[in-house]
Design a protein around this nucleic acid. Sequence first.
DNA 1: CACTCCCGCCAATTA
DNA 2: TAATTGGCGGGAGTG
Length: 896
Amino acid sequence: ENIFDRSMMAPKTPIKNEPIDLSKQKGCTPERNPITPVKIIDRPQPDPWTPTANLKMLVSAASPDMRDREKKKELFRPIENSEQSDTPDSLQYDIVDDSTVDDFEKQRPSRKQKSLGLLCQKFLARYPNYPLSTEKTTISLDEVASILGVERRRIYDIVNVLESLHLVSRVAKNQYSWHGRHNLSQTLKMLQEAGELQYGELMTFQHREQDLEYKFEERKKETIPQSQDRPLLDFSEPDCISASAHSRKDKSLRIMSQKFVMLFLVSKTKIVTLDIAAKILIEETQDTVDHSKFKTKVRRLYDIANVLTSLGLIKKVHVTEERGRKPAFKWIGPVEFPGKTDELRGHSPTSDPLPGTQRGACAQYQTCTTGKQRFTRHASFNSAQPCEAAKRKVSSEPNSPRQERQDCIVNSDENCSKMINLAAVCRQKIEEDTGDKACEMETILNSAKNSNTTSPFSLVPVPGDSDFCVNPLPQAVFPVVQADMPGFSLPIGISSQASHPSTTASSKTENGKPTLVPSQPFLCFPSSSLFMLCGGLQEKNLSETPPAAGDMANRSAEAQAAVPPAAYQKRSAHKCSLSSAPVDDEEPAAKKQSLEQSDLPLSLVVPKMPSESPKAESSPASGCSSAVHLETYRLDLTSPAAPEAANKESTKPLVCQEQEKQSQNKDIDEPPAVNEHICKENANHPFQPQYLYVQPTAGLSSFNFLFSTNQAPGAINLAANQLPSLNVPCVMVPSAALASFPLVCAPSFTNPLSPVPDASAAASTNFSMSSLASTTPVFISTPAVVTPKVSPTPSVDPQQPAHPTLHLSPVLTRSCSAVKVDSPVCMGHPVTLLKLQQPSSAPLTPKNIRPAHHEAFFKTPGSLGDPVAWKKNEGNQTRNASSVQRRLEISSTSPD
DNA sequence: CACTCCCGCCAATTA
DNA sequence: TAATTGGCGGGAGTG
């Protein structure tokens, strides 16, 4: 046996060492030199005992690898791993060979190839993110080390960090148990809470002055004397795990890792520079010793950061300050602690190596729920299902729920996810703030649709529920704020988020698909109050809003900008419906740009100028915001619905309506086209609509109109009077209906061109009027989205007579179809269509929708039909639509 | 040269 | 005492 083993082993060692060997060998005799090994390697033969062999033996013995292997062999066999035991070996060999080859050829694995981050990815790849509860996965250090071809020491580095997040726990000597990300959200939440206690103050400062790092330190020191202790506690906290085990030293990488994560969670900007982190983590020593200590700390932080990066929780960026640029990391993981969680991946697609996009999306979905942390589990990314699960929020009805998940699944998920996240966030906040009060959220999503990925939305809380709103603006419309507000001010509610360039930017980019349009703001209204979402508004008016910022900031700070406050409906039924108004974009390129930009912007300027961020380009302020939004979106989306659903199960029907809008980045400036989507769900109470411009005209008294902020009031008026003629995107909703539901209007911004939307809108209004009359909650949304080029009346948005009402259905349908075509994601349109089509009460009936997967939901609207078509289309359009659809679905569900 | 961070010595902890 | 963990920092790779 020995011989064989040796032979086997021998090869490896040399190989592995190869690169390294030199160094190792230095101690040894020259003989060892490189080449020799080759022969050996090649030959598995037996001749063990040659002198060289002896040397090897020694070497091997010395080398950890060898040791491990041997152990492995012995240990593993017995070990549970049986299944894979084989593979590893085989792999090893293979690897060896390869490596040997490489050595010869490449010779250099290059440092990158051996990086801890890469190693961690490999490590993670071996285990499911969301392992079935039933199966317990144990990790054998030796095995993993051998398989991955690294020394155990490295595995410890990885495992320690994972352990800090509770992704794994140590069960025994060499044994770790894999938990996956199921508890990640909880863990993060805990960390966040802990972090706030410890670092909250600091972070607050941070935002303003990153520069002030120093200050931080000082303060932190003051404030956080006990910091050390806490971490430990944290460990224990988390449920599980073997807190006990930790007893070791505390310095451990684990604690550092937790603290590091805390900093991110507490940070408004979600960006933490290495040096600040190091300083903070150094705790005590402030001055003296620092230098060496500092360096060491930084080294460790890099180690941790590499692992976190592999997990998709953070990504490297650079912060530019006056002083120059500093290395920093941005949190791209879930932010919504409260609710639930999610996984990072979803959030940041970028980081993940993962396959895909979709997975990320899926992950995101899960979410939140009511205040407590409920976590839902997300499906694994891979499987489609997960997404569903995550996404599904609970609809009012138990069954309905599936609405959006699909979107997520699709690549587009990003948007969706974002949306979800936002929603979640909102809720969370709301919950937190208001407590149980349920709020329905409505968020508008802009699907990035193809062209513009995202439009940043700003949320404005309607006056009614100030709570929800980050910004309590009576005027709901102020999305603008963001623009104005540089990073600081941004904090306010949504807008604030937008403002934070750094955070947002990175996040949104994700897949790059959808980018939020900076300019677009969206509003959320609590049930009692309405929220309006406006895309691309930014108008100056909005900018005024800033006032609230201060307060907002606080909140926002927490969840990044407070993601839009989600409104929770207290009402029994909550749902989240998402409607997205896709913006049509014909210019994917633009989108891409924006995306890219967002991505690019690695360097962020922290404080000062949001504009600086690369994104800014298209719209400086907006750019930032957009990025932000993206993240937020996700959050919301996810959290709200999913979590509830998951947790609550069917409990209450929640309705969340969200709408997304997208506006082209560029377009933002332009006020003109705005699409609005409104989602309503059950109408329980009468209430007065609080739309920006809505004014119930005499005839309309029963109805509420929602207008996108963008539009000029005048336009609106017209609309009221002459619905048909109006192009303006407005939505009419019966007040009664609205009362019960939170409405969200997202003016989808999109192209000015999009005649369609307008038309649809107009149509809808008319249509809705009649239909609306029926108490049934009808959801009308303008199909912002896809611009069905059908009647391309470019430019002038509002006024075009286009096809007022009648067209609606047709138009809508078309638009829908178009949308679908473009991207499956585009659900939004379909949604609208649906409603339109079935203005009357029942129409939407989403429950049917439940399509198993992506497709399904879209289809829901019977009218839409052509599911196939959409599929085809997928690529182009943004997801916006999808979100919309979701909402629709949701809403639809209500009827039943 | 600065930034990263790999590598592995070796001490602390465990078994 | 041997093995396992993991702190730590030298110094190499990269840009």
